[in-house]
């Protein structure tokens, strides 16, 4: 991490490189700029350093001894660290700054986040240990834990400090990657998620694959595909009920996942009833047919918050509307347009 910050600093300085003419004012400008750079870094730590001292040393190194700029900065910085008797770790803090999710804007940024695991998705790649969404009060972002990172698995609904994670852009969207240098620490605190909930009224226009009476891996709780878990291979799965679908209101569409509770509320088919249907018909797929019969093409009112891919449903019900009133409203509007 320390190295990384230094490299960043160097890169930053490099960008400002100017041609080394013999022009003395140009030289002064370079020294001033580098001096400020060093001073501000120490100032953040609460140390006031004499700018003259810094400038003098820089000048000597760069123009007398022809030391490269980045080397000169490192040398002066090291000198000051010793002089002021401060810990290196404090200056080159080993921890990336704690940020809000909404503050993340570019990829390649090293940050720490205090966030709750909102959703875990099925991973398709063996390189990925876990993938899903984390959120704090400012927003929700996709996260990826690389298998190589060898981190303990996080759980849905629990809150953690994700130390030293790096932002990355994938498919045009920002995500955070958890790698070997990162740290995941569970905290005994319930991070609240963004309050921005939306209400959607639309029809369920599609029920997708992986819906119905599914089986999950007992270890990672991901849905099995043909009895196989992407990570753990052949396992004795356990039953669950879910619907992955699309709600469309004619202006937008939203991917939604309904869990067993949602499904039971809407259809009176819970896990137990679903198992019964499967046993009676000797076909697990008939549960999906039954759910399609009861849900597909119907109108729903949903309250939930937007995740990266799926709408996180908090409340769902069949739409109830006063058709007469709405009809009258539109008729009045038509009348006014007809003049």
């Amino acid at each position: 991490m320390e190295k990384l910050i230094e490299v960043e600093l160097i890169l930053h300085l490099k960008r400002g490189d100017c041609d080394m003419t013999e022009n003395p004012t140009k030289k002064d400008e370079v020294i001033d700029r580098l001096t400020d750079q060093i001073l501000s870094r120490f100032k953040k730590m609460g140390h006031d350093v004499d700018p003259k001292e810094v400038s003098k040393r820089l000048k000597l190194l760069i123009y007398e001894f022809k030391v490269p700029e980045d080397e000169a900065i490192r040398t002066v910085t090291n000198y000051l660290i010793k002089e002021l008797d401060i810990a290196r770790e404090d200056l080159f803090s080993r921890e990336s700054p704690l940020k809000n999710i909404s503050d993340l804007s570019k990829s390649g940024e090293w940050v720490s986040l205090k966030a709750k695991v909102v959703q875990l998705w099925d991973t398709e790649s063996p390189n990925v240990s876990q993938v899903g969404l984390i959120g704090d009060s400012t927003g929700i972002i996709k996260f990826v834990v690389w298998a190589k990172a060898r981190k303990p698995e996080v759980e849905e609904g629990k809150s953690y400090i994700f130390k030293n994670v790096v932002t990355d852009s994938f498919g045009g969207r920002l995500q955070v990657n958890i790698n070997r240098n990162s740290e995941i620490i569970e905290i005994d605190e319930d991070i609240s998620l963004p309050p921005r909930e939306i209400e959607i009224v639309g029809s369920l226009v599609a029920i997708q694959q992986g819906s119905g009476l599914i089986q999950r891996c007992p270890e990672c709780h991901r849905a099995l595909k043909k009895g196989l878990c992407a990570t753990h291979g052949k396992v004795e799965g356990y039953d669950d009920l879910r619907v992955k679908g699309v709600i469309d209101d004619g202006l937008n569409c939203y991917d939604v996942i309904l869990n067993e509770e949602n499904i039971k509320y809407l259809t009176e088919i819970g896990l137990e009833e679903a198992r019964k249907i499967a046993t009676e018909t000797l076909d697990r797929e008939s549960v999906l047919s039954e759910l399609k019969n009861r849900l597909l093409g119907r109108y729903f009112r949903i309250i939930g918050s937007r995740g990266e891919r799926y709408l996180i449903v908090r409340e769902i019900d069949f739409l109830k509307r006063d058709v007469i009133k709405e009809t009258n409203d539109i008729l009045a509007e038509i009348q006014s347009m007809l003049g």
């Binding site: 029809s203 226009v205 599609a206 029920i207 004619g250 399609k292 019969n293 597909l296 093409g297 119907r298 109108y299 739409l319 509307r321 058709v323 709405e326 009809t327 539109i330």
Partner: peptide, 19 residues
């Protein structure tokens, strides 16, 4: 996709499509 629906769904659809 095709599914059998009730008249309420039809009413909602007509209102929505009208709007």
């Amino acid at each position: 996709a095709i599914s059998v629906v009730d008249s309420e769904t039809r009413d909602f659809w007509v209102v929505e499509t009208a709007r």
